[in-house]
Computed example of a mutant assay.
Amino acid sequence: MHRAAEALRQGVAAAVSLAAVVCGAAASAASCDKPVYLSFDTGHMGVAPLVADVLQRQQVKVTFFLANERTLSGGSSLDEQWAPWWKARAAEGHAFGSHTWDHWVWRADQGAGFRVKPTAGAQTGRTLKVSAADYCAALKHPLQRFEQMTGQRALPLFRAPAGRTSPSLLKAAEACGFMHVPWSPAGFLGDELPSDKYPNTQLLANALRDIRPGDILLAHLGIWSRQDAWAPAVLEPLIEGLKGRGLCFATLREHPDYRAWIAAHPLR
């Protein structure tokens, strides 16, 4: 009886927590009439704690796209070291999608499958031939790990590494329940670019000048090749500057292009 009662208590607590997140997201969406959709792909995670601090201080909700990438500490972005960090972000009401487990960059269609090049995992740098079923499994794997870490389910959305896709790849992903999320031209925030040619001051000025309501914005939780980290140096001034222009922030749960897909394709 004690075990049953405890299980019931935990179930009720989880339901209440989920309801609070959903209600909070709905309230935020209702009050946000000029939204932009800030998203982060995983990276080396070196700036992840600072990003979380800024988002919490600014009360901004974003969408994270998850891959199991190599980190500065020598582990990976979805390992046990990072599980508490992801659990905290889930509790704050952020949204989550897939970036493929080993960060598979599409290179070409090949027969009924694809050629991809992982930039994470044991086969980093090799060109692999994978089937549509393989790609589907690679989409599901990080979100299964996310649910294991947080107790919450992610969204049926993905972002292809490097944004590289083909009509066949998108069709295969949709067949297993995933819709692709690119970024807006003005939403490319430039944190992948070399610091000497694209300093943070320039990236900030460009973003504040060009971003418009409805844009999907792209940044990362750490880029190996950039010397002067984009986050948090640009992140907080960008958020404050866009707020000052009357824009607000929402997750892709609220995006009009994805709401119906999310409702019709719950992850199992």
Results as ranks from 00 to 15, higher is better:
Pro213Gln: 13
Lys129Phe: 01
Ala67Thr: 06
Thr201Ser: 14
Pro167Trp: 06
Val21Phe: 03
Ala133Arg: 14
Phe188Tyr: 15
Ala90Thr: 02
Ala186Arg: 11
Pro194Gly: 08
Glu174Gln: 15
Ala172Glu: 12
Val54Asn: 12
Arg259Val: 05
Tyr258Ala: 11
Ala233Leu: 09
Ala264Pro: 09
Ala14Met: 13
Asn68Asp: 15
Glu69Trp: 00
Pro182Leu: 01
Tyr37Gln: 10
Arg259Thr: 08
Trp86His: 03
Val51Lys: 07
Pro199Val: 09
Ala219Val: 07
Trp86Ile: 03
Asp79Asn: 09
Ala173Tyr: 02
Ser17Phe: 05
Phe65Pro: 06
Ala264Phe: 06
Gly43Arg: 02
Ala30Arg: 15
Ala260His: 13
Val47Glu: 13
Gly111Pro: 02
Leu242Tyr: 11
Ser168Leu: 10
Arg115Leu: 02
Ala231Ile: 03
Arg159Ser: 03
Ala112Phe: 00
Asp215Ala: 13
Ala186Thr: 08
Cys136His: 14
Tyr135Lys: 00
Leu235Arg: 12
Arg268Trp: 04
Phe114Gly: 11
Ser73Val: 02
Ala67Val: 05
Ala207Gly: 08
Ala13His: 08
Cys248Ser: 06
Glu80Arg: 13
Asp41Asn: 09
Thr63Met: 05
Arg3Val: 04
Leu189Val: 07
Asp134Lys: 12
Thr42Met: 07
Lys34Phe: 01
Val181Met: 02
Gly75Pro: 02
Val12Lys: 14
Asp210Cys: 02
Thr127Cys: 08
Thr127Ser: 14
Asp102Phe: 10
Ala5Gln: 15
Met1Glu: 15
Ser76His: 14
Pro182Thr: 02
Ile239Arg: 08
